[in-house]
């Protein structure tokens, strides 16, 4: 069994009186693709936001490589090596590809000037095109082009390559194939496999169970704010997973499918 990268223990989060996360626990290991499944309102997005620091958790513990970590902000998460690609909201559409790739950690000259330091544009462009080349999308894309000139799939590729570039330990994809065409979806799934090959751990949130069987090693199912099942992809099938998500018996589900 490979090294543990991220462990969550009893993560809790409430919004007012709504307990979005009751107690979520899971362990992610090096170089695996884990699919996080669950119906709407199961707490998947809340969990992701807690790990990525967007909405910090109310309680519970997070361990990164066995060490206890505190994640209070997006910066904390990024510094711990956890990169998140949020649904539709990862890029600033008016900014160039290069500026997006390095947003929040721009290479600068005269760093003592703090936020007023000048961006090192030659380095920025060079690093951007090297990166685009490495992930195999150099041919069409100009690092100076604004992101709003790109297709949805290209945007996801940019966001994913940004996560890969900083050698993140854990890359979280929040419904990365939403609103994408068939070809673009395959591109994203190919990326997921490449990320695993490069040694990243991927946590993949999706509603599309077919995608899970194409790329994931393990499946974690959430229901009503809790993790209710963990399975290895080879040991399960589509129907059982759907039953787990809905919280019904697989046999019942099969029975219902026959009736309709």
């Amino acid at each position: 069994m490979s090294v543990e990268v991220l462990r969550l223990e009893g993560i809790r989060k409430s919004f007012g009186s709504v307990k979005a996360l009751k107690s979520a626990s899971m362990t992610l290991r090096e170089g695996e693709v884990v699919a996080l499944l669950g119906d709407n309102g199961a707490g998947k997005s809340t969990l992701i936001k807690a790990i990525s620091g967007v909405h910090p958790a109310d309680g519970g513990a997070i361990y990164v490589r066995g060490e206890k970590a505190t994640i209070r902000s997006a910066r904390d998460a990024i510094e711990l090596g956890i990169e998140t690609i949020h649904q539709d909201t990862s890029l600033a559409p008016d900014l160039s590809i290069a500026r997006n790739l390095f947003l929040g950690r721009e290479p600068v000259k005269l760093p003592f000037l703090g936020v007023f330091a000048p961006i090192d544009f030659p380095l920025l462009r060079q690093a951007a095109s090297t990166l685009l080349k490495r992930v195999g999308i150099s041919k069409k894309l100009d690092a100076d082009a604004a992101v709003n000139t790109l297709s949805g799939g290209e945007r996801q590729s940019i966001a994913i390559s940004r996560a890969m570039q900083f050698a993140a330990k854990v890359i979280i994809l929040d419904e990365p194939t939403n609103n994408l065409g068939v070809e673009e979806t395959h591109g994203v799934l190919r990326f997921v496999k490449e990320m695993r090959a490069a040694g990243h751990t991927v946590l993949f949130i999706t509603h599309n169970i077919h995608h899970v069987f194409q790329v994931a090693d393990r499946i974690i199912v959430m229901r009503r704010g809790e993790v209710v099942a963990e399975q290895t992809v080879g040991d399960t099938d589509l129907l059982s997973v759907e039953a787990l998500i809905m919280g019904v018996d697989a046999a019942t589900l099969a029975e219902q499918a026959k009736v309709h």
Binding site: R75, H86, S90, L91, A92, D94, R105, F116, I119
Partner: peptide, 28 residues
């Protein structure tokens, strides 16, 4: 002009106006 076009802060300003959530998610 320097701040908006050439500085790190300028990149953040444009990013916040363009997609605030994305900027926050990058630690801005």
């Amino acid at each position: 002009a320097y701040i908006l076009n050439w500085s790190k802060l300028g990149n953040w300003i444009s990013a916040i106006g363009s997609n605030r959530n994305a900027a926050i998610a990058r630690g801005v």
